[in-house]
């Protein structure tokens, strides 16, 4: 709603969110852009610090920075191409943005590499937008689809069987285009790989 220009319509949702999750130590979200929105935009919309928003973390952040997972018993003997989503990279800092001259890191890759048997690839232009953007994909259909298709081709060029990432919305967008175009590529959320074979 906010990205579409109707942030005002989400006021109650923001208040409800804060109420609902107030008593928890961490609020863990399985989708990076959602976590980013809550974390960054909820306090701006409410006009004050939001207790729950302040404790909201993406699943990757949670496992990497809070739990500090160092080993995993999971197994995923496949080639995967890592989708670094815009808000994961540039709002949550899950990896170093390619635009900036900062030391390179990637928390998603760090976690995935703990999984037995996995080969992790990243596409050329590793953090270019896939073109979802919420309401953007229904308003700018042509450009959004072209961005998605370009991204899919770059993921597929790595030779991976799966595209994975922590952001469900990007995966849904690319999956929709891949299905329509009958492209031979599968999609899987990072959480599913981290828990594979458990």
């Amino acid at each position: 709603m906010g990205n579409a220009g109707f942030q005002g319509k989400a006021d109650k949702l923001v208040a409800d969110f804060d109420e609902l999750f107030r008593g928890y130590d961490y609020v863990v979200a399985p989708s990076a852009s959602c976590a980013a929105y809550v974390k960054i935009f909820h306090p701006r919309m409410a006009g004050h610090e939001c207790e729950a928003a302040g404790k909201t973390v993406d699943l990757v952040e949670f496992l990497h920075d809070v739990v500090k997972v160092e080993s995993l018993p999971s197994k995923f003997p496949h080639k995967v191409s890592l989708h670094n989503s815009c808000h994961g990279v540039r709002e949550l800092g899950l990896s170093s943005p390619t635009e900036r001259n900062v030391p390179k890191f990637n928390k998603i890759r760090d976690l995935l590499q703990l999984v037995d048997g996995i080969s992790v690839f990243e596409p050329e232009r590793p953090d270019e937008c896939c073109g979802f953007g919420g309401m953007f994909s229904v308003e700018e259909t042509g450009v959004s689809a072209k961005m998605g298709l370009d991204k899919l081709h770059r993921h597929m060029a790595t030779g991976a069987e799966f595209i994975t990432g922590p952001d469900s919305s990007c995966l849904m967008h690319m999956q929709g285009i891949a299905a329509k175009q009958h492209l031979p590529i599968k999609f899987i959320h990072v959480a599913q790989i981290l828990s594979a074979g458990l």
């Binding site: 109707f6 005002g8 989400a10 309401m135």
Partner: peptide, 24 residues
């Protein structure tokens, strides 16, 4: 965020956002 008050908001986008509001 200002397009609606400028009367430039897309009606369909507004309907969708209103639908989401009701649901959420």
């Amino acid at each position: 965020q200002q397009l609606d008050s400028m009367h430039h908001a897309d009606p369909m986008k507004k309907t969708m956002s209103e639908g989401m509001k009701v649901m959420f």
